[in-house]
Design a protein around this nucleic acid. Structure first.
Lengths: 211, 211
DNA sequence: CATATTGGATAGTCTCGGTATCTAGTGCTG
DNA sequence: CAGCACTAGATACCGAGACTATCCAATATG
């Protein structure tokens, strides 16, 4: 198909498609002449993926890196997953304070019986999130963190359990995209559960209007 | 204290403090003359909160609205919670397609036994997240959504269970901020659980390096 | 009184994520 | 084969958002 059809299929404006081509988010089509190139389903899918990642607020360079990992995963699933997580917010400046680098995160992981390794990007992300809570004056109790940990681990077990096992590339693609793209679903479901519980448990019977 | 001290305490540059004052994110200090005002702990706390919300990527107008809800909650916990959720991404254009407005979200909520009400903002947010997944070519299975639902509900029950009950204002503050500010913690914990599980279950014994 | 600090107003800067325009070369139609 | 439509590729432009810097005039403070 030609660009115009790609535009029609995806709903993404031509100028934006060209922009994504320039930025390396979309692979070039197969050139058939100096002013013509052919695109395929692969390009439609890629644009859908870019749209999803961009819609989640990821900056273009991060999206490029994630796509690179999905396309050319060099390394183990474990390594690639770590690199992919580094592309997701919150973004950390590479500050290396050698001591007990991430005390809050370490305490949580120790209690949960998970490996603490400061090289995991997500450890720094957790630390920063916990720091933010303290600065904001609404710290988390250990009780709450532990309870979160159990449920979150349950979710992660589902994720890992449903991971495709035949192909390593499929597994990596699944893990990288699943991390990035399922998070909004989880957030939305939590918000809905809050409202559901608030309505069922806390609402005064006489009130009738909602939201 | 004077501005200079406020700046020192929070680490936020003076120009930015002034900007927040202009934008209405920080309440003005008590003016003692034409060129002097006094600030208190309240201002330090507020700046910490603004920093946390801004650091999470929320745009200034959304932060202003959340602060307004926290400061002057008019309405039930349930209503205020709904309004607060509307300030969090993903932001929905107010498009009202009357029919079966949010079919994907509805199906999920029906299976989970939760109330479906299209007026809940989070219903639209869930719908949009699920749409994005489909467009990206990696839809969620019902099995997975249901399993997520159970664990997420467990998390929400913890949240609601730990909610302060004496003061309605405290409860609202807790709910509004907890929704917005605990999400990064949950995301980080899920990522860590993924890495932990990937390491424990899937890693080849001979590999030694991590992340 | 002299220097340092403010509050308040205004303008400038930087990044991001696109859009729009321009130039040719090419395809397709009648 | 003439002529209009459609590219690819390069470059310029734009508008929002979140600060950041500068000025000025009025105090504070030593």
């Amino acid at each position: 198909m030609r660009v115009s059809e790609l535009v029609a299929r995806t709903g993404i404006p031509l100028a934006t498609v060209k922009y994504y081509l320039r930025e390396g988010l979309l692979m070039p089509g197969e050139a058939t002449s100096a002013t013509q190139a052919r695109y395929g389903e692969k390009h439609v899918e890629r644009l859908g993926l870019v749209k999803a990642l961009a819609g989640a607020g990821l900056p273009i360079p991060r999206i490029r890196e994630i796509l690179r990992l999905v396309d050319h995963p060099d390394g183990s699933l474990f390594e690639v997953l770590g690199e992919a997580i580094a592309q997701l917010p919150p973004y950390l400046d590479a500050s290396v304070d050698d001591g007990d680098e991430f005390p809050r995160a370490r305490a949580v992981l120790d209690r949960l019986g998970q490996v603490y390794d400061p090289r995991y990007v997500a450890v720094g992300q957790l630390e920063r999130a916990l720091e933010g809570l303290e600065e904001a004056g609404i710290p988390m109790t250990d009780e709450r963190l532990d309870a979160y940990g159990r449920h979150v681990r349950g979710i992660a077990e589902i994720d890992i359990g449903l991971m495709p096992t035949e192909s390593a590339e499929d597994a990596i693609r699944y893990a990288v995209l699943g991390t990035a793209i399922y998070e909004p679903v989880i957030a939305a479901m939590r918000r809905l559960a809050h409202q559901d519980l608030a309505q069922k448990r806390l609402r005064n019977p006489e009130e009738q209007d909602q939201q």
